[in-house]
Amino acid sequence: MIAYMLCLVLFCLGVYGALAKRNVIKIVLGLAIAECAVNLMFVLIAYRVHGSAPILPRVAEGGAPVMVDPLPHALVLTAIVIGLATTALMVALAMRIYQQYGTYDISEIRELKG
């Protein structure tokens, strides 16, 4: 249980970083942390105590052994790829923002308001 809670704490830290920090790069890092926390959550959900690798050569006597759940691992792979795309795009945007504004501080990047 404590592992799940720590995972949620990590998620909240990441979201806090993304929403409260003023530096563009720190915002991107915050999102990356939050994303890692969610991926970790998936892996935690798949975990079984004393579970073996989910490979079943033949059905053993007395039912299948305890195995970790393979599905969330597949989901995490997909989620990591999506996260990579988002992070890459945001870093590219951050670069273009720096070229245009000459700063990474979002309190100085305020063309739009109202």
Binding site: F11, V15, A18, L31, T86, L89, M90, R96, I109, E111
Partner: peptide
């Protein structure tokens, strides 16, 4: 302004997506 808007949109959108992903988990 387009870059600034896109960055803002990307940050908010990503936070939303992460909430959805956590919910799915």
């Amino acid at each position: 302004h387009a870059l600034e808007a896109a960055f803002k949109y990307a940050v908010m959108g990503s936070v939303g997506s992460l909430c959805i992903l956590l919910g799915i988990a």
